[in-house]
Design a protein around this nucleic acid. Sequence first.
DNA 1: AAGCCTTCCAACCGCCGGCCA
DNA 2: CTGGCCGGCGGTTGGAAGGCT
Length: 312
Amino acid sequence: MGRTPCCDKKGLKKGPWTPEEDEILVEYIKRNGHGSWRSLPKLAGLLRCGKSCRLRWTNYLRPDIKRGPFTDEEEKLVIQLHGILGNRWAAIASQLPGRTDNEIKNLWNTHLKKRMLCMGLDPQTHEPFTSCGPTIKAPASPTTRHMAQWESARLEAEARLSRESLLFNPPSLGKTESDYFLRMWNSEVGESFRKLNKGDKTACQSPTSQVSSSTKCGSVSAVTMEIGHNLARSLTPGSNQNEETECKSPNSNHEEMVIGSDTSCSNDSQDSSDSALQLLLDFPINNDMSFLEDNYVMSSAMLTDNSLICPL
DNA sequence: AAGCCTTCCAACCGCCGGCCA
DNA sequence: CTGGCCGGCGGTTGGAAGGCT
């Protein structure tokens, strides 16, 4: 029992859009909103299927689309986020205002994937290749692998934050220079973040309590901070010295965000990883996540040294 | 100049999950 | 509960553009 096609293909135009069609679509959406995509083409007088109209609008005609080539910063961010999210282009696109999932997917497939290969890294796993494949045997599916990475990151963040919480006052004691996450937490950025979340009485007392309670209270903020920690670590040269995974590329010593793919991942922890991942995907990114961008900017200079740019 | 090859990206296709009757 | 509708997503494709011989 196959699905009915999204539209009756008879009499409907396919292929590249003409400027006239673009104009009709834009004018219609400006006046009426897109409403039901399925009925839009008929109402607007277009010989296209609704899906085609939606795609044209979201990928090309939308007024907030950012034109022009990707900046280095954007490319780095895509690579970082791909390491966390895998091929979830829409989720990645939500981190890059004005960029579409299609655009990012194309960027990855045409440029970044090659760059990874050139650096001796598996574009799917972000792990170094060896003569007989990746150094670390990854879980069977990308989804499972990313869940494991998430959980591993969460557990380590929790452990580290528990340790650090003992040293929270004075903040400088025992703090590594590279721990941007904690520094940020203690900075104005962290403070404004805490203010932002002051409504949540169970979380946000401290980084430790917040992260620890992330999966129990479902605090999106906590997950955000985990992401921040993960990204901060991945952006920080030398910060992975004590991590479980060997992240050394034969070609470079660049940052690597693969975090112990082979660390234990119990069923219980997979559940929490599930919720964390889900929360991330549901997270309305253009508010809280901005602090990550700050962090990213702060750390991006370091990336330049161990450049991801691979002359082809 | 012509032909071939490669790269790039807009657009299509099919699947999935949420919603609703 | 079930099945259809719909929007969204990720994978793939096809053709235009540019480079090379």
